[in-house]
Design a protein around this nucleic acid. Structure first.
Lengths: 215, 215
DNA sequence: ATGAAAAGGGGGATTTTTCCCCTTTAATGT
DNA sequence: ACATTAAAGGGGAAAAATCCCCCTTTTCAT
């Protein structure tokens, strides 16, 4: 008989977190220590060393300190904690970033309790859990190879955020302390990288990739 | 001693629905009959008359048949069912639409189980539950009066959707079988109504108001 | 060390977007 | 019946976005 596996839930929807806590506890083999609203609260809680769990179930879309940041911090400071990412949307870039940050599994919020249970067991016993839909995503991504991995630079991301406002490129140039011509260069190189043709394309890309979050 | 209140949960995140079901049952005074993934499934379930609940907890963002549609249908066909809307975002237009559709309460997913419990009791006993943040929203909306209720016409919504693509206005005009000049008129009137200055403003507005949904 | 990128910037042309003022036709209210 | 308003459309101009080809300086890997 192995000891009870301890778990922490990190999710800003506290109703969901609470409900999930009850569900997990009902499995019997697991014990939820507590749940927190975001990464920052988790960091605070972890200051008390007795609160370190075996497993952390982390939501990706959170204000303050999101899932990717939290996972990265956790892997650096408490590498023994296994991370399972929990998210509503299954967009590929997010999955990749989450796995690179150190997550051992990725689950969508529309799964069944049974699958959740299986995933927990797999991560504890085998060290990982990858559902079919996730492996498909990752495989297609890897298949496309590294030449398509348009990693945006900090400066480009900054520009992208401003491009989602009603500023003209000239105003953006002023805000970034660059010449309008340089901004024009950024724009053109992004059009090429992202395979788009207009500023609307920039906005849509930024929103899909959570570089700009409306509301 | 009153009889047990029966509840149905409608949410496409079945993990959340399941977890919420457990939580609600743990209150003791309520009994969740079943949970479904969307309005269409709810309609099917209701075909068996013995499955009609006292209360329906309905998520707003669902594929297939969303919260507003579901509530409207429910109020027409089963007016005795009380509806509590459950959502992640607290954007005002959505709240207004949901209340107009017939919801008796509006809750955010980041509330505590206690508040959830109170809301259920209020809706059953008093027929409504409005949290502080919601009443603020609604009051500010009502305060702004009816002249600011930019209800968009079908044609404008159609234009707005196309404006979120990489089509030029000329192409949009072609797609909508209108002169480019008419499209220019739509654009200008929307700029006025929505208090914006550029096409980026249109895209952001459309996304915030769920007229265009990226992925 | 040296050639190749990468980062910042310029000139200039073409389209698109944005803006303002104006006309016609059809629907609508009083 | 008549005024009003909404919807579709036009002319024309200024501003912004898009595109293409060019230059310098720095950084960086072989």
């Amino acid at each position: 008989m192995r000891p009870v596996v301890t778990i922490v839930v990190v999710d800003d929807h506290s109703l969901f977190a609470q409900a999930l806590e009850n569900l997990i506890n009902s499995f019997g083999e697991f014990k939820v220590l507590y749940h927190v609203k975001n990464g920052q609260e988790f960091v605070k809680k972890l200051a008390h060393i007795e609160n370190v769990p075996d497993l952390a179930v982390i939501d990706i879309n959170m204000p303050v300190m999101d899932g990717v940041e939290t996972t990265r911090w956790l892997k650096k400071n408490y590498p023994t904690v296994n991370v399972i990412a929990l998210s509503m949307d299954d967009d590929e870039p997010t999955i990749i970033r989450m796995l690179r940050a150190g997550a051992r599994g990725y689950l969508l919020k529309d799964i069944s309790p049974t699958i959740l249970h299986d995933a927990f067991k797999d991560v504890i016993d085998k060290g990982f859990y990858y559902s079919n839909c996730i492996t498909n995503h990752v495989l297609t991504s890897l298949h496309r190879g590294k030449e398509a991995d348009h990693e945006l630079k900090d400066r480009e991301v900054e520009f992208l955020k401003l491009a989602c406002t009603e500023m003209t490129y000239k105003e953006i140039a002023g805000a970034m302390c660059l010449s309008p011509k340089t901004i024009d260069g950024y724009r053109e190189s992004l059009f090429e990288k992202l395979q788009i043709k207009s500023r609307v394309g920039l906005v849509i890309y930024a929103i899909k990739n959570k570089i700009y979050k409306p509301e």
